[in-house]
Amino acid sequence: NNDALSPAIRRLLAEWNLDASAIKGTGVGGRLTREDVEKHLAKA
C-alpha cells in the first residue's frame, strides 16, 4: 500500500524502478525503511 510509504521511500523506489511489494519492510508496522530498500538493491 503506497499510503504507508514516506515521500523519501516513494522517490527512492521510483528512482530505481522498484516495486514496493517485492521488498519486506522492517519498520514500524512493516513499513519500508531506507535500509530495507538499500539491502534489496545490494542483493540485486
Rank of each mutant, 00 (worst) to 15 (best):
N1P: 14
N1M: 12
N1S: 13
N1L: 13
N1R: 07
N1K: 09
N2S: 12
N2I: 13
N2P: 13
N2Y: 07
D3Q: 12
D3R: 10
D3M: 11
D3F: 05
A4F: 15
A4Q: 13
A4M: 14
A4I: 14
A4K: 12
A4L: 14
A4S: 12
A4C: 12
L5F: 07
L5D: 05
L5W: 05
L5H: 06
L5I: 13
S6M: 05
S6H: 07
S6N: 06
P7K: 09
P7L: 14
P7G: 07
P7S: 10
P7H: 11
P7T: 10
P7I: 11
P7E: 15
A8S: 11
A8T: 09
A8L: 11
A8K: 06
A8G: 08
A8W: 10
A8H: 08
A8E: 15
I9D: 00
I9S: 00
I9Q: 02
R10S: 06
R10H: 06
R10I: 13
R10L: 14
R10P: 00
R10D: 05
R10Y: 06
R11F: 10
R11H: 09
R11Y: 09
R11G: 06
R11A: 14
L12T: 01
L12G: 00
L12F: 06
L12H: 01
L12W: 06
L12E: 01
L13Y: 01
L13V: 04
L13S: 00
L13W: 03
L13R: 00
L13Q: 01
A14M: 13
A14F: 11
A14K: 12
E15A: 13
E15N: 07
E15G: 05
E15S: 09
N17F: 06
N17L: 06
N17R: 08
N17Y: 05
L18V: 09
L18E: 03
L18M: 06
L18A: 03
D19N: 08
D19S: 08
D19P: 07
A20D: 05
A20W: 07
A20I: 08
S21W: 09
S21R: 09
S21T: 11
A22I: 10
A22K: 12
A22M: 14
I23V: 07
I23T: 01
I23F: 05
I23A: 01
K24Q: 13
K24R: 10
K24H: 09
K24Y: 10
K24V: 15
K24N: 09
G25K: 05
G25T: 05
G25H: 07
G25N: 02
G25F: 03
G25D: 02
G25M: 04
T26Q: 02
T26C: 03
G27H: 01
G27Y: 03
G27A: 04
V28M: 10
V28W: 09
V28R: 10
V28P: 15
G29S: 06
G29E: 06
G29H: 07
G30S: 04
G30M: 03
G30R: 03
G30P: 02
G30A: 04
G30W: 01
R31L: 12
R31Q: 13
L32S: 00
L32A: 01
L32I: 15
L32M: 05
L32K: 00
T33M: 05
R34E: 11
R34K: 13
R34D: 07
R34I: 15
R34S: 06
E35V: 08
E35T: 09
E35D: 09
D36I: 02
D36L: 02
D36R: 01
D36A: 01
V37R: 00
V37K: 00
E38K: 07
E38H: 08
E38I: 15
E38Y: 15
E38N: 06
E38M: 15
E38F: 15
K39R: 14
K39L: 13
K39I: 09
K39E: 10
H40N: 02
H40F: 15
H40K: 03
H40S: 04
L41R: 05
L41P: 01
L41A: 06
A42V: 09
A42M: 12
A42I: 10
A42T: 08
A42E: 11
A42P: 05
A42S: 10
A42L: 13
K43R: 13
K43W: 13
K43T: 12
K43L: 14
K43A: 14
K43V: 10
A44V: 15
A44Q: 14
A44I: 15
A44W: 15
A44C: 13
A44T: 14
A44F: 15
A44E: 11
A44K: 12
